[in-house]
Structure formats: C-alpha cells, structure tokens
C-alpha cells in the first residue's frame, strides 16, 4: 500500500513546518502549499487524501479553495480539515456547509490534530 498523503496549506512557514512534523508522525507523506491557488494546482496534479487548510491567506483564501475543491473533486475526497484562528461559530458553520470534514481552532497541538484527523475519518481510534 502506498503511503497516505496530506497537503498542508498555510501562508506561514512556521505553521506549515509544525503541522508537517505532527502529521508525518501520523504516517502521512506531507506536501505544502502557501495559498489556496497553489493548493488547487497541487490537487489537480495529484489529489491528496487529506488537506489541512488555513482560512486567511493571500491570492486565494481557504474557503474559496474549499468550495473550488468540492466543486471539482466531490464531497468526500480529499478530506479537508480547516485549521485557522477564525473561531467564530458563524465561520465554523460556513466551513461545514462548504463541505469541510473537521475544524481546528488555532493554536493546535498534536493531540488536537490527532483527534480531528480521527473524526475526519483519516485515522483509526487509538485502541
């Protein structure tokens, strides 16, 4: 079986690096994009299994990417987990209705990402 893949989309190098380290620890091969447009291009060349997605980014923001990805690739693939400082209920509802599987409010740590990846169906429940 080929290794599972996750695309980390965030305009902050620091956040991408932190997320990469954690998600690699879950056994995923991680690639990075710094905005929604780069992420969309990456998905078109090879669709990852998971996308960890920031909201506020230059060029194309996360919610625009989310809607474009759902229109182009369907409701289930890739599994998309928002990961953003936006913590308002209205924003969470907006992301869910646009087709996000899960939602992480920054700051995050490995435990939160593991739980959210589990709920998004990307990881098995730890026995």
């Amino acid at each position: 079986m080929s290794q599972r893949t996750c695309l980390v989309v965030d305009d902050s190098t620091v956040v991408r690096k932190a997320a990469r380290r954690i998600i690699e620890g879950f056994g995923f091969r991680v690639s990075e994009a710094k905005d929604g447009q780069e992420a969309l291009d990456a998905c078109r060349s090879a669709l990852p299994e998971a996308v960890l997605l920031d909201w506020n980014m230059p060029v194309m923001d996360g919610i625009t990417f989310l809607r474009a990805a759902r229109a182009e690739f369907g409701p289930d693939q890739p599994r998309i987990v928002l990961c953003t400082t936006e913590a308002e209920l209205s924003k969470i509802l907006e992301a869910l209705s646009a087709g996000a599987q899960e939602y992480v409010m920054k700051p995050f740590d490995a435990d939160i990402l593991r739980d959210k990846f589990t709920q998004a169906g990307l990881l098995e429940e730890a026995a």
């Binding site: 869910l96 899960e102 995050f108 435990d111 959210k116």
Partner: peptide, 11 residues
C-alpha cells in the same frame, strides 16, 4: 472542546 468532540457536535 477540541479534544474528542466532533465539530458537528460542538456546533
């Protein structure tokens, strides 16, 4: 609320 709780249940 981010530990163990699916976001759909949170909202």
């Amino acid at each position: 609320v981010q530990r163990g709780l699916p976001v759909t249940m949170l909202v």
